[in-house]
Nucleic acid binder design. Structure first.
Lengths: 144, 144
DNA sequence: AATCGGTGTAGCGCGTGAGTTGCATAATCT
DNA sequence: AGATTATGCAACTCACGCGCTACACCGATT
């Protein structure tokens, strides 16, 4: 049971952007280099975040990416609801279900409750809470 | 974020076996037919459950599969810990990590806590709790 | 010993997630 | 207008999860 790599990178992009001074931009190439993946791949993630209006991406010289919301207003649970498919088994979705007992299944209810518990923990935090307290990220960024 | 199909089928096999009278066996072919997959594929799942000593599989005429534990002693949280890789992002595992800020990351801690909350809900239930209350499974089984 | 009814497992093919490549398009600076 | 610095995205490749086929092996019955 894993979060998709897209969700993982989405979180990383947001943490990276949130660690900067408010309003500053970073380029996709810079962030990609920091996390060791290609710019093109990271751009796909940025496009998704842009569609969800979590970041603003500006093309062209002097362009780049910045947060479009205040870190303290960005609920991590909401982000994950947007980026992840949370049907953790196929019977959560009537269209994909093949299980013959899905219509009366305690297991499905249990897994729904477990998923809710997972998200409830995430709902308590915002991006602001995730920004490095020890300035580790800033130190790493400044070292490059 | 999905449970693997193996975990899903493992749960289904256990629910199927648990719905029978105590101690009765079912064949892999029978269970596979019930869930609409090939016997060979279901056998891989059964082999995993057998290795984990949750079921006993007997070869040969009159063989088959039966639960090796009492449904009320089979904790769903423990099962999922055994069948799933719960490193929901790569940084949970130092060997696979590529994230440069993993050593000091609030996000990792948050996702660990969310995973624990997910499992805490599952830990409250046993296989006994999952067996169909309305006898839907038994009705379906008897109809075949 | 042969047959029947069972499980065990290696190897294979397909679909999809993940990451790359190449090029298009855009915006600012000179 | 051209150069530079930026994002956007289609098409591609690869790895792996998933499910299948084929055959091996097993144990009871005849």
């Amino acid at each position: 049971m894993q979060l998709t790599r897209y969700t993982d990178y989405a979180l990383r992009v947001l943490v990276y952007l949130g660690s900067a001074e408010s309003g500053t931009t970073a380029s996709a190439a810079e962030i990609a280099k920091f996390y060791g993946i290609s710019r093109h791949h990271l751009s796909k993630v940025v496009s998704m975040l842009s569609e969800q209006e979590l970041v603003i991406a500006a093309r062209g010289r002097g362009g780049g990416i910045r947060l479009s919301v205040d870190p303290k207003d960005l609920c991590i649970g909401d982000l994950i609801r947007q980026t992840e498919n949370l049907s953790i088994v196929e019977c959560f979705n009537a269209e994909t279900n093949t299980c013959p007992i899905a219509s009366d299944c305690t297991l499905e209810n249990l897994l729904q409750d477990a998923t809710k518990a997972f998200l409830a923990v995430l709902d308590k935090m915002t991006l602001a809470d995730l920004l490095p307290a020890s300035q580790a990220l800033l130190q790493i960024r400044l070292a490059r």
